[in-house]
Design a protein around this nucleic acid. Sequence first.
RNA 1: GGAGGGGUGGCUGAGUGGUCGAAAGCACCGGUCUUGAAAACCGGCGUACCGCAAGGUACCCAGGGUUCGAAUCCCUGCCCCUCCGCCA
Length: 424
Amino acid sequence: MLDPKLLRTAPEQVAHQLARRGIPLDTAALQNLEAQRKQHQQATESLQAERNHQAKLIGQAKSQGQDIQPLLQATNTLGQKLNAAKQALAAVQKDWDDLAATLPNLPDQAVPEGKSEADNRELSRWGHPRHFDFKVRDHVEIGEKLGGLDFAAATRLTGARFVVMHGQIARLHRALTQFMLDTHLENHGYCEVQVPYLIHRDSLHGTGQLPKFAADLFRLDTDPGYYLIPTAEVPVTNLVRGRICEDLPHKYVCHSPCFRSEAGSHGRDTRGMIRQHQFDKVELVQCVHPDQSDQALEELTAHAEAILQLLELPYRKMDLCTADLGFAAARTYDLEVWLPAQKTYREISSCSNFRDFQARRMQARFRDTRGKPQLLHTLNGSALAVGRTLVAVLENHQQADGSVTVPPILRPRLGGLDRLTAPD
RNA sequence: GGAGGGGUGGCUGAGUGGUCGAAAGCACCGGUCUUGAAAACCGGCGUACCGCAAGGUACCCAGGGUUCGAAUCCCUGCCCCUCCGCCA
């Protein structure tokens, strides 16, 4: 949520910054709503003051044994007027809240202008795409050859956009997960957390998935109607919801499955593991002092990059443009890994600074030096999406005979195995 | 699933329907004392909104209701605790 004070006092400035994202803001409607709110609020409060005053008089009169009948008559119509005023105020307030809840965060000044993802700015590259002197296979082909990726089985069990992993590949997937977790907690100073995978709507509202993006979520048809988490960001970031933190920064690393219905994207990446309804991810979340968040984004992104480097996967770092920025983000770096079968870089991590946008929705605060509660800043990033990392390892480290070289850093976690091969 | 008991300020914890935004303690901040610190003592100490200010309004889990007046009474929901049952 944007700062309502800013929305009230500088609507033109907000409109200008939202326009960079291609979001129109009707400042006249906003100011009209604000004027109404103020009027109804003042009317309501003065009626409340009157009611309190009368009630106090009656109380005093009664305690002195006086006749309160005439005083009661003075309050005759007060209740009705007050109720009407309250309802008018609530209606305006709701309109305001509904509008405010759908406005995305303001982009950082440094975010490049753009109309589509094509305008994202490349900041750096690491590693070199390998030269293959044989016909490159994609991960589906590699996985099926190795007997480790079975999309048909998943279809039988559930449907499209799921996968069953077997044997060495299942183990590789687990090794990747644990390698990421251990690297972040041993080298990068994160604390590991395990969280619920079912959450209620307040949590989703806190991080910004609701009310706008309900269509992307899986919801349980139970009472209460829980949602499956679309990312560990939601439960982990909401750990600070409604709290005043005394010990910033908080740095959490969390492995979880992620569930996305991806309603709008049918027809994209239908083949393979790139876009699934369920995938595993290792997520980094930081809650920091507002002065620290810019630097924290650089650090957090570097932590995700470290995983790619250790796995010897070529990647590039992108600065998302205003058009591609997520709803709650002020600044986002995407890491894109090289996929030789697609001859392109594909997103494998997204690292964002949300500033106080999520914190305001969550009322997540810390005490400043004067002891006053202030909104903290939140950040998160994938480090990494495990499914896509598996894809990248299989494709980048494939060999002519269909086997796959295991990156050296993972070998101890695979019982010393240095190469994935088809079972006899 | 059954039966009870609870949800009050950063924490602990009082609160007969009528100056209760709420006692007390802890923690915290300022001061006195001290070479310094501790102790003791004195004072301060919730959040948000409206207002130039004086001041006003709201908030005692959430949402409704009763009442001139609700932290206090009633209803619903959520959460926590104890006991029983079931269960990985």
